[in-house]
Simulated scan of single mutants.
Amino acid sequence: MTDTPPPLQPPAAAGAPSGALPAGRADYAGFLQQHLASQTFNVVRYELPGESVWLKKAGPAIAAWRYRTLGLLSRLLDVPVLQPVVNPGGRTAIATEVRRLRDLHARGLRVPMVLADAPDGFLMRHLGLPGGNTPSLSDEIEAAARQAPASTLVLWQQGFAALQRVHASGTCLSQAFARNMVRCPDGVIGYIDFEDDPLATLPPALCIVKDALCYAHSTALFLDNAGTLEAARVDWQAWLAQTEPAVRTALERTVQQMRWVGKLPNQRKLGRDTLRLRAMVGLLRPLP
């Protein structure tokens, strides 16, 4: 990633959507406006000479009632961190993501650079190499759990450290699952997907807790399968011991409320979602 966008040129012909650029001096804003009208899918990658870009356009609005069940569950279980962060979709989600990407970039965090934006969509630079695939951290950890189990802990630690860098900068992520983290070509962990803003709904401490739980939920089963869950648990407890009291209290309360999940049998017939929760509770439980 560079901070200054290179001159835009016509898209490469191989393997990517294409279209004529505006006459005269080509620019990202013109490319965005031209393709917003013709792009069928909400998110499409385009290959340009020397770089890859993503165009994300506004999708349909999301009805608020879809979040009521989770909100009710939060109140019934008395677990505030489960309170939903509403993503309204449409133009509001686009504006939120552009604002959050620029804010995170200004804090020195690795996110896709916004090249151009409009009410109905925006253009951002790919975090990986031009023309290349960039696996998510989730894909990396899952592959390591199958092929090189010992390396899962190192990958998990890198993602956990990247999450802590975000919190140290004074903000949070949005959906802090390992699938929304990628390793850039220089090895730095980057972050994607910011259609909602937890800080607009929740206190900062609960935003940190939500991030931590998302990361734990998306990685614990891989650690368990690789036999590295207990080692990661030591790292988790070390972080918990030094974090701010409000975060520690909220996390400990959440773990206490979910302790029954850890008593479920470790059986595939319960489904992958249940196994993920069971492994997460195992990762979060206190050391003896």
Rank of each mutant, 00 (worst) to 15 (best):
V44S: 08
D197M: 04
E195R: 10
L101E: 08
W239L: 15
A61D: 11
A279P: 04
N225K: 12
D186Q: 08
L115I: 02
R110P: 05
N133P: 06
L36I: 02
L72I: 03
T40L: 15
G59K: 02
A63S: 11
A106N: 08
L284P: 03
P198S: 07
T219S: 11
N133T: 07
H167Y: 01
F194E: 05
V111D: 07
G128N: 05
I189H: 09
L229Q: 02
Y67M: 03
A220E: 00
V209I: 04
A95K: 11
S174A: 14
A23Q: 12
G90K: 02
L173G: 11
Q33T: 09
D117E: 13
A231H: 09
A20T: 10
E97N: 05
V81S: 12
L155D: 01
L153W: 01
L199N: 13
D117P: 02
Q157E: 11
A148V: 10
R102Y: 02
F41K: 15
Y215S: 06
L137K: 01
P5Y: 02
L123C: 06
L173Q: 07
K210C: 04
G50N: 03
L155R: 11
A106M: 09
L229V: 01
A176M: 11
I94M: 13
Y46P: 01
V182R: 04
W239E: 13
V85N: 07
N266E: 13
R268T: 10
E244Y: 01
D78P: 10
R268I: 07
A246N: 02
G128D: 06
L153S: 01
L275R: 09
V111R: 08
S151K: 09
R146L: 15
S18F: 04
Y215C: 08
A150L: 06
P245A: 12
E97I: 06
P6R: 07
P5R: 05
N266Q: 15
P185K: 08
M258A: 15
P84I: 02
D103G: 13
R102A: 12
F31S: 08
V209Q: 02
M124R: 02
S74L: 09
L287E: 07
R45C: 12
S136V: 02
D211C: 06
A220T: 00
V255C: 15
H105K: 12
L76S: 07
L206P: 05
Q9C: 04
A148Y: 06
A143P: 07
L109M: 12
P88A: 13
A231R: 06
A150P: 00
A12I: 09
P7T: 00
V81A: 15
W236Q: 02
I141N: 10
S38G: 10
Q256P: 03
A116V: 05
G90S: 11
L173W: 11
G271H: 00
L264C: 12
L104S: 04
N266D: 14
Q39F: 05
D224I: 00
V98N: 13
A232N: 03
A279G: 07
T228C: 10
I62F: 14
E252V: 07
P265E: 07
R268Q: 10
R248H: 01
F222H: 10
H167F: 05
L251Y: 00
P60M: 11
L72K: 09
P88H: 04
A250G: 04
G108W: 03
W236A: 04
Q39Y: 03
